[in-house]
Design a protein around this nucleic acid. Structure first.
Lengths: 334, 334
DNA sequence: TAGTATAATGTAAGCGCTTTCATTTATAGC
DNA sequence: GCTATAAATGAAAGCGCTTACATTATACTA
């Protein structure tokens, strides 16, 4: 591999000049520039990014921590981030945190030890305090799907409350009045917010919420099934169900089917997230779209703007979910 | 951030000694070692990985190129790789190739420019020649799901032919004799191999293959639907369908349902890949398991063994798919 | 106890760049 | 043509480590 030194020799200029044309950050005469460029081409020169990093104290890499690498959700997020970063010549280092505190911290430390210029974090288990302290350190962070008031500018969030509201409102508008709700784990803020939105819509329509028609799952499809079982076991009538995410909705639909309930004819269901699977399950799931890919992109842009001085970028911190109507919810036939 | 120099000062030893205890690759007396360790702890010292890389000519990073970051398939693969690599303290840099030649090459060059110690590639569009040339360069590569005889040792593959065989055999054993086949894009070797397995099973059971019951899709669900439409339009009877992947199977099932065909009662379907979605679609898909996560792990191990001298690891190059029986295929009721 | 082998530690030269500062060269003003 | 100024280039000092080689301390042999 050719080094900058050989380029400089071949071009008959100094190291510094070659470096300048590489970074085109200083004035170099056109003549010299083209001489250098020619030499580079001739030698097939590629700058050594490690050496660049050491000298410039910039690794040009951004660290990403997601809960899981597999699963439909994080893939979209990663895709958004990678896309944006690569276009800017930055690379992306990934780690998984498995929604578990020790593992998340471990992942973050790992990324820090790799000299990332910034971190994009989708963390769930770690405390606000930890993140605030982390943000006070010398490596900038941006948080996806987590809102911490003290770190407001570093947060890219979805308006989960609105999503919960929209999901519920749709059912209400379709004439349903007996609604059940399968929530996510209530220690997670998004689960809480979605639920809050549900309550707001119910209140708005003057429908009283029946605590007996509430069940708390853990965002996995199996818990959707389990919750649905519980709900059904109570023998209380309900014509619609909102699930705090698509996977639990899938689990619930399955149980409904086993119980001979027609979806949506006898039971309307709406999910949340709009995962790819929402299109595959039958009936196709009516759900709330979570633009996680876009949010990943935006997080990457935040980094480009704040760390790599791409001034022009416009940032957006709060995303609005939107309802996606498919087949799992229909008007109540009285 | 403390540097090695400050550690050496505090511990009252030389730089070299500190470096030695960090890498514990040379004999250091217990007394000195603990002095150094104490100094490190006291300063909260973390080695600068960039500097380490520059000096050692080892970046401790492995580059991964996948076709897409989203989607259920690559996520599992990434998860397997990341897991294994991180446990060994290596990090993972990712890029997407989008199954498009220029983009794949671009991604590879990008990873090379980041000084990866090795590359794990899931490429589709790039030519064998290109890969052979690449492998001859000074950065080792391992190929997932691509077999090139000259690079046999660097390939981690699934026995796709066997998979196609197993899928078909299952149907044959269940008594079906009129089978349709929806293939993947036949320029892809996995699509070709799966199809070959299908033919072998047919031959083995003495069933003649009817070319009119063959359709070529592109591995997307929409093409599964389209192919199914074509097949149905021919008005030829068939009681079973094998699809070269799960997504096309999902598309096909949908069309079957629209045509009032009961799956599996009137039409048995088997897929290939065993994506998570196979569990979500209805009826739950009988399919061939593609242990992509395991294969990712294995690719990572290949790298650990060959590049990072983890001698003990056992390698496996060819994985055997296995049939997963669920609900979309049943015995032919005569 | 000297003499040697061996273990432990230190010295210093890079790794391939960036960047400050000094120096040279071109441009403009008169 | 000669200075004053600006633009282009070069020299050299790091960035924080690793590692070959040199040196010193320790253990062992006869």
């Amino acid at each position: 591999m050719a080094t900058i030194y050989q380029v400089s020799e071949l071009a008959g200029v100094s190291l510094a000049t070659v470096s300048r044309v590489m970074n085109n950050n200083a004035r170099v005469s056109e003549k010299t520039r083209s001489k250098v460029l020619a030499a580079m081409a001739q030698l097939g020169y590629r700058p050594n990014s490690i050496a660049q990093s050491l000298a410039s104290n910039r690794s040009n890499s951004v660290g990403i921590l997601v809960s899981e690498l597999h699963g439909p959700f994080y893939g979209d997020m990663l895709a958004g981030i990678e896309n944006e970063c690569r276009a800017a010549g930055k690379h992306v280092i990934i780690a998984a945190g498995h929604s578990e505190e020790a593992s998340e911290i471990d992942g973050i430390e790992f990324l820090i030890s790799r000299s990332c210029d910034a971190l994009i974090l989708h963390v769930e288990a770690v405390s606000d305090d930890y993140l605030i302290k982390l943000a006070a350190g010398n490596i900038p962070i941006v948080l996806i799907n987590r809102y911490i008031p003290q770190l407001a500018d570093n947060c890219i969030c979805l308006n989960n409350e609105l999503g919960g509201y929209l999901a519920t409102k749709q059912l209400l508008q379709q004439g349903h009045r007996q609604l059940a709700y399968i929530a996510g784990p209530m220690w997670k803020s998004d689960a809480k917010d979605r639920y809050a939105g549900h309550l707001r819509a119910m209140a708005e329509y003057g429908v009283t919420f029946n605590p007996a028609l509430f069940a708390e799952g853990d965002f996995q499809d199996s818990s959707g099934s389990a919750c649905m079982q519980q709900l059904l076991a109570k023998k209380l009538p309900f014509t619609a169900l909102v699930c705090a995410n698509d996977e639990m909705a899938a689990g619930a639909i399955e149980v409904a089917r086993e119980h001979g309930l027609q979806v949506p004819e006898q039971l309307s269901i709406v999910g949340f997230d709009n995962l790819i699977l929402a299109r595959y399950i039958h009936p196709k799931l009516t759900t709330i779209d979570y633009p996680i890919g876009e949010m990943g992109r935006m997080a990457a842009r935040w980094v480009l703007k704040h760390i790599y001085q791409h001034q022009a970028l416009a940032l957006k911190h709060l995303f609005e979910p939107v309802l996606v109507c498919r087949e799992s919810a229909c008007a109540l036939n009285v």
